[in-house]
Amino acid sequence: MGLLGSLLKGSGEILGVVSEGVLKFTGEVVGQVADEFGANDLADTSRNMGKKLGEVSNIALKTTGNITGTIVDKTIDITTEIGGGLGGFVAQSYGASEGEIQNAKNIGKIVGGAAGGLIVGDVIGAGVTGITAAAGVASTGAAISSLHGAAQTSATLAQIGGGTLAAGGGGVAAGQAILNGINVISTGDGVVSGIKKNQKY
C-alpha cells in the first residue's frame, strides 16, 4: 500500500469518527432542548436520528476513503507495470541485450509510477480546487463560483490556503503550496512504488 493511499484511507477513518460524533452530539443537544419543553417524543426522535445518521455517515466516509485509497494504489501499480513494459519493449525493439532490456524495464517502472502518481495528484488537486470553487466563499463574502478569471483563481487558492493573509490565513501562496504538495506526495509515492516493484525481481 502506498503512502497516498494510506493517507486517504486514514482520512476516511478520521472524518468518519468525527462526523459520527458531531451528528450524535447534535441529536443529543436538540434532545435536551426538547426535554426542557416537555417534548419527550421529539427528544427521543432527535437522539435516535443523530445516532443513526452518525453511524451511516461514519460508514460512508470510511468506505469512501478506503475506495479512493485503493483506486490511487491500483492506478500507481498499473502505470508502474505499463512503464516497465514500455521500457522493455523500446529497449528490445532497438536490439538491446537482456541486461539492457531489464535496466530499461526497471527505469520504465519508476518513470511509469511517477507518471501515475502525478496524474493522481493532478486529479486530487483538481477535485480540491473544483469543490472549493463551487462551495467556497471569497473574503469579500461573494460565492467563489460567482467570480471569474483571476479573481476566481485567487479566491480559490486563498480558500485552499486557509483564507486570505488579511484574515490570518496562508493566502494564495499557501493554497498553491498545498496543491503542489499533493503532486509531490503522489509523484513520490509513484516513484517508491516503481522502486519496490524493481526489488521484487
Rank of each mutant, 00 (worst) to 15 (best):
M1G: 12
L3W: 11
S6R: 11
L7Q: 03
L8P: 09
L8I: 12
G10K: 06
E13I: 10
V22I: 10
K24R: 11
V30Y: 14
Q32K: 14
V33Q: 14
V33Y: 12
D35K: 12
E36R: 13
G38N: 12
A39K: 11
N40A: 05
D41S: 15
A43V: 02
A43E: 01
K51Y: 15
G54C: 05
E55G: 04
V56W: 08
S57V: 00
I59W: 15
K62Q: 10
T68G: 14
K74C: 02
I76H: 03
I76S: 02
G85W: 02
V90N: 00
Q92W: 01
A96G: 10
A96W: 06
S97F: 07
S97N: 07
I101Q: 09
N103F: 06
K105D: 06
N106D: 15
N106F: 08
I107E: 04
I107H: 01
G112F: 01
G112C: 10
A114E: 02
G116H: 07
G117L: 00
G121H: 09
D122R: 07
G125C: 05
A126G: 04
G127L: 06
T129H: 03
T129E: 08
T132W: 08
A134E: 13
A135W: 06
H148P: 00
A151I: 10
Q152A: 09
Q152W: 03
Q152E: 09
S154N: 14
S154C: 02
A155C: 06
A158Q: 04
I160M: 01
G161I: 01
T164Y: 03
L165S: 03
G170W: 00
A174R: 06
A174V: 05
A174P: 01
A177D: 01
I178F: 15
I178Q: 01
I178E: 02
L179C: 02
N183A: 14
V184S: 03
V184M: 11
I185E: 00
I185M: 13
T187I: 04
V191Q: 00
I195K: 05
K196M: 15
Q199G: 12
